[in-house]
């Protein structure tokens, strides 16, 4: 039976998804073994039960927090994809400062804003947490793929191993890469 595969994008730049697309025609190999049932560009339905979830980005807000908890429940294998998911990376660079300072820098003091200093506060918007967390600080992560972004080869290797019921080992496969 074909496996169910989903990808999701939390606090990240979508670069890891771009890299995923860079596996090019090898997507056909993946498609033979799995149905991609959910992905940021597909639709907005709730995250379904899946065999493999590729999660890009770190946990930066209440919304991400709830989402990753939900994903953890739904996914048999949770893959932290990319440096942001693994070690907060660039998204974590705001952790050196208090959230208020970060907001002020972006919405009040930035040369490009209108000078009114309005901070977004609509009820529908996510609420930023004071501290950006990597995935393993919130849930148990099964497979860790660092890299900013991980190369297409690495992503394909990880996917292919998982789809064939093997645990990928980046260290032995010499595919470890940060940054």
């Amino acid at each position: 039976m074909k496996k169910k595969l989903a990808t999701v994008w939390l606090g990240g730049c979508s670069g890891c998804h771009m890299s995923l697309l860079d596996i090019d025609e090898r997507i056909l190999e993946v498609a033979k073994l799995a149905d991609i049932v959910k992905c940021p560009i597909v639709d907005g339905k709730p995250f379904p039960e899946v065999d493999i979830a590729l999660v890009e980005g770190s946990v930066t807000s209440d919304e991400h927090y709830e989402e990753i908890l939900h994903i953890r429940k739904q996914a048999k294998v949770l893959v932290a994809l990319g440096d942001c998911a693994v070690m907060t990376n660039i998204t974590g660079m705001r952790n050196y400062f208090p959230l208020q300072e970060v907001m002020a820098a972006a919405y009040t003091h930035s040369p490009s804003n209108d000078g009114e200093g309005m901070w977004p506060n609509h009820a529908a918007l996510l609420k930023l947490h004071g501290k950006v967390l990597p995935l393993q600080s919130v849930v148990t992560v099964d497979v860790v793929v660092p890299g900013c972004p991980p190369s297409a080869d690495t992503i394909f290797y990880v996917l292919y191993e998982l789809l064939n019921d093997r645990m990928p080992d980046l260290s032995t496969a010499q595919k470890l890469k940060y940054g």
Binding site: A80, V86, Q136, V144, V145, L170, S171, L176
Partner: peptide
């Protein structure tokens, strides 16, 4: 990091 197999 690569030498000790550090992934996270």
């Amino acid at each position: 990091g690569y030498a000790v197999g550090l992934d996270h």
